[in-house]
Amino acid sequence: MTGASTQVFNLTIRSAINLVLIALLMFTGCQKKSDEQKEEKQVTTIQVKGSDTLVNVAQAWAEQYKKVAPTVDVEVSGGGSGVGIAALLKGTIDIASASRNMKQEEIEAAKRNTGKDAKNFTIGYDALAVYVHKDNPMNEISLDQLAAIFSEGGETTRWSQLGVTIPGAGEDEIVRVSRQSSSGTYEFFREHVLQNKDFKLGSRDMNGSKEVVELVGNTKTAIGYSGMGYATPSVKKLSISSKAGEPACSPTVENTFSKKYALARSLHIYTMGEPTGAVKQFIDWILSVPGQKILEENGYVPATAAN
């Protein structure tokens, strides 16, 4: 038992050391921050959080905006549209990005928590693409077939049921790649493909748009959905028809824009109340030509193309 007791002793010493270290870190961290604030008082920080679909674009905006307005620091983080909106309601961020509309209960909660209305800016459009591995011979799929693959109680679990044999793949079972439930992409897919029914359990729920495409690119028998801006050479986007037999439409900029493509959606950013000062200038810049050009370069359809 002495062995165990020395171990316990070691552990307490270790945890004590850890505590001291943490305290030190916090202390120095605080100091540093206040020093920085003293040095450059005029720097304002804008916090943007939310959609994983938009996180790459928002990052590019932040970098470019630094050149336009050097005194404004834009900090970007992902987590999912739901996470961003929840943070906006708590008041911890300035701008929430979302790949879905705000829900009624979220709008009400916003009013209740802050007394302000959430303000919506539509900043662009995106097509939700259905991805398969590049070796998959399939080129198009209907919404019904997708629902049968992804929804609870849907009967399609094997590629042979769709009449597809994937060359070089040992298995026939469809590997479904989905998103975590805080994702706006997840909710959009559930609403428009599954008609608000639930997903079949057992799908691989990835934590980001990029991860979905990556897993599909590594897995010959996989099928998944993600923003159209995330395509890589190892995956293929499927054309989508609303019913089997009807003409299918590919996720291109024109088709997204004309709403011919069934899974086109608008992209939003939200603020609490009418934005002012640096936040307003930032949003105006996003909606201006340079901001929209960055959106287009990242594979999305600019909002200004509508006019």
Binding site: G80, A86, L89, Q180, S182, R204
Partner: peptide, 19 residues
């Protein structure tokens, strides 16, 4: 087979669940 654990589930979902 892929699985999900109790801990991973909490970590993945607590961020979105509104208080």
């Amino acid at each position: 087979d892929s699985v999900r654990t109790l801990t991973a589930n909490i970590a993945a979902e607590l961020g979105e669940a509104s208080v």
